[in-house]
Computed example of a mutant assay.
Amino acid sequence: MNRPCIAIPLGDPAGIGPEIVVKALTDKELYDICRPLVIGDREVVRQAMDFCGLKLEIHGIDEPQEGLYKPGTIDLIDLANVDIGRLQMGRVQAMGGRAAYEFIGKSVQLALDQKVDAIATTPINKESLKAAGVEYIGHTEILAGLTGTQDPLTLFEVKNLRVFFLTRHVSLRKACDLITRERVLDYIKRCTDALRRLGITRGTLAVAGLNPHCGEHGLFGDEEVRHIEPAIEEARRLGYDVAGPIGADSVFHLALTGRFSAVLSLYHDQGHIATKTLDFERTIALTVGLPFLRTSVDHGTAFDIAGTGKASAVSMAEAVRVAAKYAPHYNRSI
């Protein structure tokens, strides 16, 4: 089997990213399905292993093809960009933000050069990025900027449930204003295309309702009548397999049980609550629309426990698994 190579940037070195990476790479099953490649700093990796009480070999390489990719060994491209003596665990600091950004940048370049098949990212800290003078606020913005991608899609996957997001990091008031006929139609098209790129060619996309009971035909909220329903009807006329709007109190359960291939959530918390309540640690974020596939844990740097070795690596291992699962389909579709 030609195992896909998955680049894993360490994230903010003052957070739990390095710890969950070294813990995840003790999972021998990951090496059966992929070739995990860490992009980071050797001393940060060594320190993370000390925090976690682990003893793994660090195999420093310059190019992905030089990796051993076997259990018990961490293949590492060492950027040597962290002064471990000055690193303050659990603290916002420019050095951490700059290193995290450079880890991502190197991973992106490897992906653009087709030397790795996907990227599985670890947590970064927005304040540390700002302290370092990085112009981007988060992972999605960094990846979009470095690749020249306009408005990449966010997809959450947990168990059998997949959820797209019409709006993300805006206020609820602004999110409601962004729910227009044109935008909903555009996202139906883009989400369907994204599913195909992941190899999911069958099934119906469901659009969640915005108001309670989808507004009961305008009795309490008319967004469904004015914007969402017309967009769905137009999409159907164009040949898209889409249903809705379906009340948000039931649509996620229906998708989980196999009725729908995915759900288009209309605002951030609507979809986040559904997925994270189902299984917080195994909810994985995928960024679709980039020149390569990116998956990620869906939690933060957890500065409060950084350096203690307590952080769970379940989500990190799952992010690598999901990247390995979809990368071959995604790359064939490009």
Rank of each mutant, 00 (worst) to 15 (best):
R3K: 15
P4V: 11
A7P: 08
I8A: 06
A14Y: 05
G15D: 05
I16R: 06
I20M: 10
V21Y: 07
L25C: 02
L25W: 00
P36Q: 10
L37N: 10
A48E: 05
K55G: 04
E57L: 14
T73V: 15
A80P: 01
V82Q: 09
M89S: 02
R91P: 03
G97Y: 14
R98M: 10
V108F: 04
A111V: 06
D117W: 07
T121M: 07
T122V: 14
I124Q: 00
I124A: 02
S128K: 01
G133F: 12
A144R: 09
T147I: 06
D151N: 14
T154N: 15
T154P: 08
L155G: 05
F156A: 02
V158I: 04
K159I: 13
N160Q: 13
V163H: 12
L166P: 00
R168N: 13
V170D: 01
R183V: 14
V184F: 01
Y187M: 03
Y187C: 00
Y187V: 00
C191E: 05
R202F: 12
G203F: 04
L205V: 06
G209S: 10
G209M: 08
G215H: 04
E216P: 03
G218D: 09
L219V: 15
D222Y: 07
E224T: 08
R226S: 10
H227D: 07
G239A: 09
G247N: 11
D249T: 04
H253N: 06
H253G: 13
R259G: 08
Y267H: 10
H268I: 11
L278N: 01
E281L: 12
T287N: 14
L293G: 06
R294G: 13
G300W: 12
A302G: 01
G307P: 08
S312P: 15
A317F: 02
E318K: 08
H329F: 15
N331S: 15
R332G: 11
